[in-house]
């Protein structure tokens, strides 16, 4: 067990290292920031001076080492676009908004996916199962950005129930959270359904029924508990999807989170901020996968590497 955890942590570190190289390289290739700072008629000497000031004249491996060293100390550099702010500070400021949105979205999708998934497994091939299938298909097929706009049109413009964009009270949260959570529902529901189908077919469930345990207890206690392992691994994937989804949802609803920050920063060629955002997102994704793997190994002792 310990060996497994150590190996898995080591692998996660390697992945993080390679992602950091990719991020670094990409940022260096995405245009020269000197062009953004200086006016068109700047002389070559001025350009060189600025490059030296920013450390861009040094060889790339050295720049990378310096970058990693700084990152280790929590210094991701200063923002280029937002004056006087550090990149990490900016991400930190915006992070609560994204986290809030993601948490509510996750809650909404769990609230829908769990009961519908269980019901469509228990009542397989009935109207419940059919409705579940339709929800799953719709979730996988509607483009999230379009769904957001349609929701805005129906509930914010036509019915005037919610505000169209921005962050504020609780009503601002509902439409973006539904948009972000919707996509998760389908996949999660299918996983719950297939896991439940498998468990319901086992001997111990039959035994529980023979013993005369009430049906709701069999389903919601005995079966669901055992069926919750596969959906659990999905949480790692969801973490990644929520982040990608956050970029789209936040720009549809101008929600002031990390996703919107990333879009703005890349348009302004703000290197440090882009690096920080991508590294944060990749880091969260890798860590959540690691945590799920370890948890999984605890829950299901058959899994070893």
């Amino acid at each position: 067990m310990q060996r497994f955890i150590i190996i898995r942590c080591f692998q996660a570190l390697i992945v993080l290292f390679i992602v950091s190289i990719i991020v670094f390289a990409l940022a260096r290739f995405s245009g020269n920031p000197v062009d953004v700072f200086l006016p068109f008629d700047a002389t070559d000497a001025q350009q060189l001076a600025l490059e030296r000031h920013l450390g861009l004249d040094q060889p790339l491996p050295l720049q990378y080492l310096k970058f990693v060293g700084n990152v280790m100390r929590g210094d991701f550099g200063d923002s280029v676009k937002w004056d006087g702010q550090t990149a990490l500070g900016l991400v930190g400021q915006r992070f609560p908004a994204t986290l809030q949105l993601a948490a509510i979205a996750m809650g909404i999708s769990l609230l829908i996916a769990l009961p519908v998934g269980v019901l469509s497994a228990v009542k397989k091939d009935t109207i419940f199962d059919y409705i579940g299938k339709v929800i799953a298909l719709a979730g996988q097929s509607l483009p999230p950005f379009w769904l957001g706009i349609v929701l805005i049109f129906i509930f914010a413009v036509a019915l005037d129930l919610f505000p169209t964009s921005g962050r504020g009270g609780g009503t601002n949260l509902i439409l973006p959270a539904i948009t972000l959570g919707w996509f998760q529902v389908a996949a999660m529901m299918r996983l719950v359904r297939s896991a439940m189908l498998e468990v319901l077919d086992t001997e111990y469930i039959k035994l529980a029924r023979i013993k005369g345990v009430q049906e709701w207890k069999v389903v919601w206690k005995h079966a669901l508990r055992n069926a919750s392992i596969p959906p659990l691994t999905f949480f790692g994937i969801i973490a990644g999807q929520l982040m990608t989804g956050a970029v789209i949802t936040e720009s549809v609803f101008t929600w002031p989170g990390v996703g919107l920050l990333a879009v703005d920063a890349i348009r302004a060629r703000d290197y440090p901020v882009v690096q920080t955002v991508v590294l944060t997102f990749a880091g969260i994704y890798i860590l959540s996968n690691l945590a799920v793997d370890i948890l999984y190994a605890y829950l299901d002792p058959r899994i070893r590497y």
Partner: peptide, 22 residues
């Protein structure tokens, strides 16, 4: 398989935005 892990941990949309910026 490690390359697969890495490919899966890159946020696609951010990658696209970064390349498009240049």
């Amino acid at each position: 398989m490690r390359a697969v892990d890495i490919a899966l941990s890159i946020p696609a949309i951010l990658l696209a935005l970064a390349i498009v910026a240049s």
